[in-house]
């Protein structure tokens, strides 16, 4: 088990290096630079600024220097937000993004799991079609459409919830829903199809022949097997929530990592964007590892070694 985790973490290093290289090159290839907004700077000052951030050197050299710094745990200073280092900005945004993401993911698992199971148990009923239609819409309609509609309805018309900003729990309700919705939709569909398949299996017939209650059959005999595809989807789901949070935090004016990411990209704040990319990539790698470990617990046939 420990050997498995260590090996997986070692495998993460080349992955991360590839992610860093790719994003670094892409970002530096994009036109523009961090000092474009300060129009009319003296050429000497511009040169000085560039050399202060090593921007005057060729990109491969910059990349190697950057990787060297990262290996020492230094993500560098933010070019635009001059009073902060990238690590400081990350630690400022992280609590907001994390609390949002975890809530959205839990909501997606819970609601998606329940809806999918219910639809599977009432296959081809009105309720089933309703869940599947809603879920199709949930996948098809992007969150940047859902979020403003939610805000308009609950925030403006009904005046029930704040439309934006960060404060108490009420501020989180709409962003969490908007963030969770596409995942609810996908998980409900996954859950439904795998549950239908499991309910047709021989051991469910055996369980019925034993005279067990339907609740026990679903919860104890069917669910642990039916949830496996959902668990393997958790990795992509987390990536989806991270991507979603970038948009959602922008719409709801939330001071999370996602908003720094957008701002950083617009400002060409290279170190800030790179820091967030590394953090997101690391989060996805770690979550995928957790999913694999979880798999070993749910399916006794899989031994994590």
């Amino acid at each position: 088990m420990t050997a498995f985790i260590v090996r997986r973490l070692l495998f993460a290093i080349p992955t991360l290096l590839a992610v860093i290289t790719l994003s670094f090159v892409l970002m530096h290839t994009a036109p523009g630079g961090p000092f474009d907004i300060d129009a009319g700077l003296e050429p000497e000052i511009l040169e000085n600024l560039k050399s202060a951030y090593n921007l005057d050197k060729p990109v491969p050299v910059q990349l190697l220097m950057y990787i060297g710094n990262v290996l020492q745990g230094d993500l560098g200073p933010s070019i635009i937000r001059k009073d902060y280092t990238v690590s400081e900005l990350l630690s400022l945004g992280l609590p907001v993004s994390l609390s949002l993401g975890l809530k959205a993911l839990s909501l997606a698992l819970l609601l998606g799991g329940i809806l999918g199971t219910y639809a599977a148990l009432h296959q081809n009923s009105v309720a089933d079609y309703a869940v599947m239609t809603l879920s199709m819409s949930g996948i098809a309609i992007p969150s940047f459409v859902v979020a403003p509609v939610l805000t308009l309805f609950f925030g403006v018309y009904l005046n029930l919830l704040p439309v934006a900003g960060w404060g108490d729990l009420r501020h989180q309700i709409l962003p969490v829903i908007a963030l969770a919705l596409p995942q609810v939709a996908i998980i409900a569909r996954l859950m439904r199809s795998s549950m239908i398949e499991v309910l047709r299996s021989n051991y469910i017939r055996t369980a019925h022949a034993k005279g067990l209650s339907p609740q026990r059959i679903v919860i104890r005999h069917a669910l642990p097997a039916a949830i496996l595809p959902v668990i393997s989807y958790l990795g992509p789901a987390i990536a989806g929530v991270i991507t979603g949070s970038v948009v959602i935090e922008q719409i709801f004016e939330l001071p999370g990592v996602g908003r720094y990411f957008i701002q950083g990209a617009i400002d060409r704040d290279y170190p800030l964007v790179m820091g967030i990319v590394i953090f997101f990539a690391g989060a996805v790698i770690v979550m995928n590892l957790l999913v694999d470990i979880l798999y070993g617990f749910l399916d006794p046939k899989i031994k994590v070694e």
Binding site: N202, R205, T206, G211, S213, R220, H221, A225, L298, K301
Partner: peptide, 28 residues
Amino acid sequence: TQQKLNTIRGDRITMIFQDALTGLTPHM
């Protein structure tokens, strides 16, 4: 009803099936 049947099957009338590998719940 299925509910009534559940008091009989598994108790008074039991059934065993051909394929005991797929007939037993794999994760219990």
